[in-house]
């Protein structure tokens, strides 16, 4: 007690010292900071979460949801029949964002191809998973919005980019995805999915990482601005009205032929039936005349 008193007395001797005010201010700030940190909501800490924490969170999620097929360290699992889940070393954050963000991963069931479905993880969880997978080896990162949008270009430049994107689309994409982006078949039950209503970021990532059957169009092969042009073209076709009327699925002549038969011939034969079933209507009762043909 005396010791405390003595030291307090020694401290109090400095209470009017030139540095005292500064020191108290500093102590106060530290205290409030600590208390705030202890009681503030969890999300507020996220923003400041370090990469290591994110990776750690991603790893935990990975062990629960992905490791069964992709291995505990993302090294891939080989089944007796060949690959079970491929190695994720070097696929990059973009691949995770595409596969998990479109609901393709985690896969519902093994099959020829992972199907897009409602996504299972929240955006933060996908970020964490992406950070973890990205930490396994260098790979393409999640693109920034400036990479896949035409923002910042003049109207004329945007229009030119869309035209160019259309030509690039016809050259590189339609062989599998169809001229209208409505998708097409691939051998052995695989298929190129429809591109209608797909988010710009996901289209960009798909080109960048080449998911499933798709070839990789790396940024060296197809420059980011070309990718952005293709995306802009696709979005512009979604915005343009169907000039010709109902598009019947945008599948080409097969559905057109079906409509020609079902709607066209179907209704015309129906009309023929209708005409033939209506006999002559006249005031006089006319019996069918028998024409003895000369």
């Amino acid at each position: 007690m005396r010791l405390l008193n003595r030291s307090a007395g020694r401290l109090s001797r400095h209470r009017r010292g030139p540095l005292a005010g500064l020191l108290v201010l500093l102590l106060g700030l530290i205290l409030t900071g600590t208390v705030y940190a202890a009681f503030s909501p969890a999300s507020a800490t996220k923003a400041g979460k370090s990469d290591e924490e994110l990776i750690q969170q991603g790893r935990e999620l990975f062990l629960v949801g992905c490791a069964f097929c992709h291995g505990q360290n993302g090294e891939g699992v080989k089944s007796s029949k060949g690959q079970y889940g491929p190695s994720l070393v070097g696929v990059g954050a973009a691949a995770v964002d595409f596969q998990v963000g479109t609901g393709r991963m985690p896969m519902q069931q093994p099959g020829q191809q992972a199907l897009a479905k409602k996504k299972v993880y929240t955006d933060e969880e996908i970020q964490a998973l992406a950070a973890y997978v990205a930490s396994l080896g260098p790979g393409p990162a999640i693109p920034d919005e400036s990479e896949y949008s035409l923002e910042g270009l003049s109207e004329e430049e945007q229009r030119e980019a869309i035209t160019k994107g259309g030509q690039l689309f016809l050259t590189n994409c339609t062989a599998c995805h169809n001229f209208d982006g409505s998708g097409g078949a691939m051998p052995n039950g695989k298929f190129a999915p429809s591109l209608k209503g797909v988010e710009k970021r996901h289209i960009f990532e798909a080109m960048l990482t080449g998911p499933q059957q798709m070839p990789v169009f790396s940024n060296d092969v197809l420059h980011p601005e070309d990718k952005a042009a293709i995306i802009a073209y696709l979005k512009s076709t979604e915005d343009t009205p169907e000039y010709g009327g109902f598009g019947m699925g945008g599948l080409g002549p097969v559905s057109e032929g079906m409509f020609a038969w079902l709607v066209g011939i179907g209704s015309l034969v129906g009309f023929a039936f209708w005409i033939a079933s209506h006999t002559v209507r006249s005031k006089k009762k006319t019996a069918p005349t028998e024409g003895t043909e000369a």
Partner: peptide, 17 residues
């Protein structure tokens, strides 16, 4: 469909019925 170019092809290339 775009203009014809022998190097291009589209999925769903079918003739009329």
């Amino acid at each position: 469909y775009g203009p014809y170019d022998p190097s291009k092809v589209t999925a769903g290339s079918q003739p009329d019925w």
